[in-house]
Amino acid sequence: MRPFLYDRATSADLAASALATSADAPLVQGRVDAEYLAGGTTLLDLMKLDVMQPARVTDITVLDARHGTITVTDAGLKLGALVKMSAAADHPEIVARYPVLAQSLTLAASAQLRNMATLGGNVLQRTRCNYFRDTSWSACNKRNPGSGCAALDGVNRQHAVLGASEACIATYPGDFAQALMALDATVDIVGAAGPRTIPFAALHRLPGSTPHVETTLAAGDLITGLSVPPGPWTRRSLYLKIRDRQSYEFALASAAVALDLQGGVVRQARIALGGVATTPWRARDAEAALAGKPINEATAADAARIAFAGSKPREHNAYKVALGQRTVVRALLQAATLED
């Protein structure tokens, strides 16, 4: 791990302007990067691997009194960015009223990691692409812009079939983000210019030709909270995660599904996909295809086919198209049987 300056934030506002300012000036040995430290489960891991080399690390865990609470009302769900994954996963009101959120968190990582990792950090978790994580591979456009992509023709079994580019096919690794996508969550951000709120769907960027730019956050921007609006679909929701082993593993394919049914017919379906795409992925065309129809094997299979219509598989990940479609079908059929 490279040397860095450590300090503790005293408020979100001050921390944001401090990091925005330090983005312009070398802090340590010519390096300018500054990062926030919350749970540290991604940051310290990647710093030990020398994938991330921040010159300054600002510890924001001390802000948890202000940004670490959960509020559930009829107006929706508010989650402080410093809420731990385990706290949200075990929250009785989230389990009952937003099961897709609770399940996506419970099925992620390990109990220790869920005790450490925060929700704000979780949605910014970085890819598990081995070529990104292993610095002995020189070609990684995400780690070293312009260097190429070793995964394109490499061992790409875990890589994305949706949203990929010729510059990067790294999979977005998280689970919780899919649930937030499906429920139309919003993100509260404090930046150097003050606070703002954006749709969660506008947080992540497709890799395109700049895979090292993963989000729309500017230097210094700090996620302070997440909001999830209420809706008739939130209770009839679930997260289905398919992986190589039953626990403590990243998704090969996953689906966050929420259904608003009336008389057995879909008023609104929400589908977000994980493990198969470069960003948290909303399958809006598939959702539209289900409107006004009952959920059965045929309609679910149609929706699943549409969800993966634009997929571009590589040598070792073509199985994800069929696996992802079956994941969507099973998730839809299971959700349809849930009590409203």
Binding site: Y6, L44, D45, D59, T61, L113, N115
Partner: peptide, 27 residues
């Protein structure tokens, strides 16, 4: 593993199990 994958470093922090290898001492 020293990367938060094996659990051998698990300690309790404020009563909750935590990976000591992914926690800065200063924090």
């Amino acid at each position: 593993c020293d990367h938060g994958q094996c659990g051998a470093c698990t300690v309790l922090v404020d009563g909750r199990r935590t990976l000591a290898c992914l926690t800065l001492a200063v924090a």
